[in-house]
Every structure is written in structure tokens, then in C-alpha cells.
Design a protein around this nucleic acid. Structure first.
Length: 109
DNA sequence: CCCGTGACGACAT
DNA sequence: TATGTCGCCACGG
């Protein structure tokens, strides 16, 4: 057992995202206290592929609701995963993003 | 120990 | 309103 690094904290929060919901990197970063380092969240997600248990990174998008990560998932995999959970994705962008938005600071309050 | 990297975000023009 | 540029901070080499 290693101490929870910033990366591990990110993984934990992402794993708490309920199916059919999405959040933004900045929201997670802010929840962890590193508000200005949304990039770090994305950087952590990079390694999330090797994290265990697996992290539902497909539920994390940028602040515009754009599937920026789909490029890393490979093809339209991310988009299909979101649609599979009931989220409508149009042009690599989540429809009604704010409606499906899940803010850790709000739900985990 | 120093430098580069990176799935973003906000501000300036 | 749209596009471009800068800053941010943790991790790996």
C-alpha cells in the first residue's frame, strides 16, 4: 500500500462518478484542491489505463463537454461507452452537458 | 536536482 | 463572438 498520490486521488474521484454522468477535469482538480492544475488531472488519467481497479475515464471530459479523451481511447470507443450509459454525444460533444454534469464538490458534499 | 511533458482552463486580443 | 497565447503543477527521466 502506497500513500495516495495526486494521481490516486484523481482515480478515486473518477471512480465515484455514477454511470450516465460526466464531469470535467477542472472540477476534479478543484475538488482535490489543485484548482489551477486541471492539466494534472488529465495527465493522471493518462496513467489511469494501468490503474486498478480500472477508472471510468470516459466519463471525464473537458469543461466544454468535448470528448477530448476519445483520441486516447482509440476511435469512437469513448463515445459509444457514453451513449451506452444513456448520454447523447453529437460531434464528439456531449449534448445537454450541464444536465449530465456531476460535480464532486456538489455530490460528495 | 533540473528539465520536459501534458486527456485543461482562463484571459487577452 | 472566435481564435490564440500563457499559466498551472505533479511525475518521470
Amino acid at each position: 500500500m502506497e500513500e495516495p498520490n495526486f494521481f490516486d486521488k484523481v482515480y478515486q474521484v473518477v471512480r465515484l462518478i455514477p454511470a450516465g454522468r460526466v464531469t470535467s477535469y477542472g472540477a476534479i482538480a478543484a475538488y482535490l484542491g489543485t484548482k489551477g492544475s486541471a492539466r494534472m488531472v488529465g495527465y493522471a488519467m493518462l496513467a489511469s489505463s494501468k490503474a486498478y481497479p480500472p477508472v471510468p475515464a470516459h466519463r471525464v471530459v473537458n469543461r466544454s463537454g468535448l470528448l477530448t479523451a476519445k483520441f486516447h481511447f482509440g476511435g469512437n470507443l469513448m463515445q459509444e461507452l457514453l451513449q451506452s450509459e444513456g448520454i447523447t454525444v453529437i460531434d464528439d460533444q456531449i449534448k445537454d452537458f450541464k444536465t449530465h454534469y456531476w460535480d464532486p464538490a456538489q455530490e460528495l458534499l
